[in-house]
Structure formats: C-alpha cells, structure tokens
C-alpha cells in the first residue's frame, strides 16, 4: 500500500523524429516500465509545442506524458534510458500520489464542513442554487 507510488513523467522529444519512430520510442519506454514491474496508467502525446526557451538549438518539441504506477525503481531505469536517448531533449518526473492524497483529504474535509452546517446548505440551496452548484463543479 505504501509502496504504490504514482509519478507523472513528462519528456520532450526532438521534433525532427519521424512519426513511426515516435511511436516506437514511446512503446519502448513503456515496456521498460512494465519490465521493471510498474504500470503505465496514462500514455499521452500532448503535442508539438513551442518551447519557452531553446534547448539544444531547437525551438520546438513534442511533449509526451506518462503516468506511471510503481515502486520507484522503474523510474530510475526509465530516466537512465531517457538520458541516453538523443531524441529526448528533456524529461522530468514528478511524484503525484502524495499531492493527490492531500487534495482528496482537503476535499473530504470541505464536504464534511458543508454537511455539518445544514442550515447554511439549506439556505444556499433554497436561496441561490448557482453558488453551491458552482462549488461542486470546482470540486469534481
């Protein structure tokens, strides 16, 4: 339970790589993760984007996002592979499970607070339904 960690890995691929090479590359990387015992829960090409600053004489890059579940060992292997690969201009891994847990807690607390004050909720629900519904929309 405590071992399951969730990471977001974003990397920038050289915009000059061919389409089929791109797919091969992402497939390779995801098999690296699965080989190490992790799972790729999300595999998304965010698309070609102008870089905010030049990286290795390139002004553009193709952004790819992985969401990985695992213990952390597959991340080190993945990062090693990406470091070696010339087509990958940059990568970054962010651990997200802790932040998400915290967010979940905050949301639960907010809900608890809202239900604790039935008068307030009833008044808000009866008075102007737009306000509470907007709040719920933000949470979802």
């Amino acid at each position: 339970m405590a071992e399951k960690r969730v990471y977001e890995v974003v990397f920038i691929v050289d915009p000059d790589t061919q389409e089929d090479e791109m797919t091969k590359l992402t497939q390779n990387l995801s098999t690296v993760i699965t080989d190490q015992g992790g799972t790729v829960t999300r595999n998304e090409v965010l698309g070609r984007r102008q870089l905010a600053y030049r990286i290795g004489r390139k002004n553009e890059g193709v952004y790819v996002l992985f969401e990985v579940e695992g213990t952390g060992s597959e991340i080190s292997e993945l990062e090693r592979r990406m470091r070696v690969n010339d087509a990958i201009m940059r990568y970054m891994t962010v651990r997200v499970d802790e932040d998400r847990q915290r967010a979940e807690k905050l949301r639960a607390r907010r809900q608890r607070k809202a239900s604790k004050r039935p008068g307030f909720a009833a008044a808000a629900g009866g008075g102007g339904s737009s306000a509470p519904s907007r709040g719920e929309g933000g949470e979802a």
């Binding site: 974003v10 990397f11 984007r49 905010a52 600053y53 952004y63 940059r90 970054m92």
Partner: peptide, 11 residues
C-alpha cells in the same frame, strides 16, 4: 518552477 524546467514557461 516545474513548468520552467520542461520549457513550458521561460526562466
């Protein structure tokens, strides 16, 4: 800061 790191935002 994270966005800067992956060139989504400028330093």
């Amino acid at each position: 800061k994270r966005a800067r790191n992956i060139a989504l935002l400028p330093y």
